[in-house]
Amino acid sequence: MTGPVLITGGSGFIGSNLADSLLSEGREVLVLDNLSRPGVGQNLDWLQANHGPRVHALRADLRDEAALREATRDASAVIHLAAQTAVTTSLADPLDDFEVNARGTINLLEAVRATGRRVPVLFASTNKVYGCLEALPMAEAADRHLPADERLRANGIAEDQPLDFRTPYGCSKGVADQYVLDYARSYGLPAAVLRMSCIYGPRQFGTEDQGWVAHFLIRALQGEPISVYGDGKQVRDVLHVADAVAAYRTVLANIDALSGRAFNLGGGPRNAVSLLSVLREIERIVDRRLPVTHGDWRQGDQHWFVADTARLTQATGWQARIGWREGLADLASWLRAHRVRISEPMSEPAPVPKRVRA
């Protein structure tokens, strides 16, 4: 490949880890980010300090079509991670959520199409495209909800699960998911979708609304109370960011064979954890009981979601390698070592400048 890899949301948690992986091999990366999320400016500073002039930064928003045309002009590939990421925010402002996630993705796809080149596009989708899964008969164990179907417990939810968009966030990400796949079909764009479960790891600035694993750890390390919405028995398959980066890179490397396909990306049944089980493990890490309060269930929450990642494994050989306890200890070590101060988000994105070199 020639030209930089464009990573939208490249200063974010997954984006900065992915950028670091590419930059460490001598690639050039164009980071497009509006820097509106708390902490991401620190990630960009870290990338620039470690990789110097091979990091190209463009502070811009997905709604700025001119900026996207500038960003894609020389790109050798696009990894589209930028998004409005919280269900709660989407419920408060569904129009903004749509403009960023749905319209912003079409803006990006059109910018890529306008290059006249076959530029690969990978899109970060979500397990929320499968809805709340309330039709699944469920059982309840001591610390977790489980599907009654033993096959689902063993394998997880596969990509043939019907799509069922719920909440504005689920709708906007689901629309974007389908547009990316259709641009592969309609325009021959080499594009694929990764429907992610809960990704966690270093450089994550988790909040109550998004990034719950890191949020729990940050609160615990700071000695602050933790709020759990629902009974805490909801289950997710968590995936360390190093494994997520490996998945993106292997799909990109095989994009000609994988174009037009969607893949689940999560930790799978071996890394299926309830919120209560994660809280117990954090108590072991910090060596004290955690003050935990419970609130009502939040709209759109899934009682249980575990990804079946067999399609991705069969297509590429990828599999999750870092167990959740090992990964949680790794994140705790990073948080302790860095003592990262999360700055307040900026009130609004700044005007789009020319491309800035480190």
Rank of each mutant, 00 (worst) to 15 (best):
A253T: 10
M346K: 09
G232D: 15
R249W: 12
A247R: 11
S277R: 12
A332E: 00
N254I: 10
I285T: 00
V245S: 13
T250S: 12
R284W: 12
Q222R: 11
G223H: 13
V306L: 07
V278D: 01
A214W: 03
R280N: 10
A262V: 07
Y248T: 10
H294C: 05
L275H: 09
D243S: 08
R298A: 03
N264G: 07
P225M: 13
D308S: 03
P225F: 10
A315Q: 11
S277E: 14
Y248F: 15
A307S: 07
L279Y: 15
I285K: 01
W297Q: 12
A272E: 00
G266R: 03
R341N: 01
I322R: 03
A247M: 02
H215R: 06
D296Y: 00
A220K: 06
L265E: 09
A272L: 02
H215S: 09
D301A: 06
A332L: 01
P225T: 13
R219T: 01
L239H: 06
V278M: 07
G327P: 00
G268Q: 06
Q314N: 05
D330H: 12
L252N: 01
Q222A: 15
G295W: 03
S347R: 05
S343C: 04
G232W: 15
L275P: 05
E224N: 11
Q299F: 15
E224Q: 13
A244L: 11
G230V: 08
V241E: 14
R236V: 12
I218F: 10
R325F: 06
S343F: 07
T309P: 01
L328G: 00
E326L: 11
N264F: 15
A320W: 00
A310V: 14
Y229E: 07
L328P: 02
D237M: 14
D296H: 02
R289Q: 12
D231K: 11
P345V: 02
V273P: 07
A242N: 15
K233V: 13
G317Q: 04
E224H: 12
S259I: 02
R336T: 14
T250F: 11
S259T: 14
F263R: 01
Q302E: 07
H303G: 07
W304K: 02
L328S: 04
A242P: 08
E283T: 08
F305M: 12
G268M: 09
T250W: 14
E326N: 07
W324F: 02
G260R: 11
L217W: 07
S277N: 03
H294W: 10
R339H: 06
T250I: 13
D296F: 00
L328D: 09
T250L: 14
S274R: 01
I282Q: 01
V245P: 06
L275M: 14
I282T: 08
H215L: 05
L221R: 09
D301H: 09
T250V: 13
F305A: 00
V286A: 03
W324N: 02
R288H: 06
R288A: 10
V273Y: 09
H240M: 11
R341Y: 01
R341P: 05
R249K: 05
R249I: 12
M346G: 05
L258T: 01
A307W: 12
Q314R: 10
R261M: 15
V278E: 08
V238H: 08
I285V: 05
